[in-house]
């Protein structure tokens, strides 16, 4: 996105909208001021599950596109060939058992071809057994709390708040590239390790979601649920709370930093030291 490092001036469109909202809207200013490189597909996957989801999505999209073109090919053919203005006389048939059986059975077969691969992904996705690290993620109105329960780093716990400033949100300061996707304490995990996230909620339902991992799990007050991921590359991955949880639902992002194992060990050591110092 070009606007990532944009100087304050580029955001002026937003402000002029604020001033002369309706006029600016109807003037068709829609596209000015935004970069062309808009995202329109699933985020690049960083886990096997996420890439499975990618392929599944592409596969089903392909199938439905073919069906769509097929069905409406017939319809448009009829629209062009069988129009009254061309003098086409209406046939009067209105039943054909064979064709009706055909178009019941073929979709059924297509569905089987769809749910079989989907089932495989579901089963893999739900398998939270034998994790290397277990972390509890608690949804609060409106921040996340993380407790490392098992594995390397067990005992670490901290809260993770939105780091984007009020000024940016309310338009008094220019917006950073990671506007609304920045937290003060990201979750840190090692690469290539199976991380199990146990979710719960403190007040209302939230949802812990990181699209690049193919993970989304509601965090429900008083109830435990779990999910897992195993990131196959290092980097910073971002998601947002995905269940309406009150006024700041849009303002409680999830940021996960995937680091190499030595970096993780160092981070754990530092956290443990800090914790000890606090006590």
């Amino acid at each position: 996105m070009a606007s990532k490092s944009a100087p304050p001036g580029t955001r002026s469109v937003a402000r002029s909208i604020k001033g002369a909202r309706w006029a600016a809207l109807l003037a068709g200013a829609a596209l000015s001021g935004t970069a062309v490189a808009a995202t329109w597909n699933l985020q690049p996957p960083a886990t096997v599950i996420a890439s499975d989801i990618h392929s599944l999505h592409e596969y089903v999209m392909l199938l439905v596109t073919v069906i769509f073109v097929g069905v409406f090919g017939f319809m448009f053919w009829a629209i062009f060939a069988h129009r009254k203005s061309k003098g086409h006389k209406a046939a009067q048939f209105h039943e054909n058992v064979t064709i009706e059986i055909v178009w019941t059975v073929i979709p059924a077969l297509i569905l089987i071809a769809i749910v079989v691969p989907a089932t495989k992904v579901v089963i893999a996705q739900k398998d939270t057994s034998n994790p290397d690290i277990t972390i509890k993620a608690t949804g609060y109105q409106w921040k996340w709390g993380y407790d490392y329960l098992k594995g390397e780093g067990a005992g670490i716990s901290f809260l993770s708040n939105l780091a984007t400033s009020r000024d940016q949100i309310e338009g008094r300061a220019s917006k950073d590239g990671n506007y609304l996707l920045e937290v003060d304490h990201p979750l840190v995990v090692p690469v290539d390790k199976k991380v199990r996230i146990v979710t719960t909620g403190a007040d209302v339902i939230h949802s812990w979601s990181v699209p690049a991992f193919g993970v989304k799990q509601d965090s429900i007050p008083g109830i435990l649920r779990d999910t897992w991921f195993k990131a196959d590359k290092t980097g910073t991955f971002r998601g947002q709370c995905s269940e309406l949880c009150g006024k700041d639902h849009g303002f409680m992002p999830i940021v996960v930093k995937v680091v190499t194992e030595p970096q993780y060990a160092a981070w754990v050591a530092e956290q443990t030291k800090n914790n000890a110092a606090k006590k």
Partner: peptide, 27 residues
């Protein structure tokens, strides 16, 4: 829901000592 609230992990992390039985008024 009552058995779920009394699962082992739930006991460990959220509701210590809660056991599943009916009638139950919750943990």
């Amino acid at each position: 829901s009552v058995p779920d609230l009394a699962s082992l992990e739930s006991q460990a992390l959220l509701w210590p000592n809660f056991t599943a039985h009916w009638p139950s008024a919750g943990p």
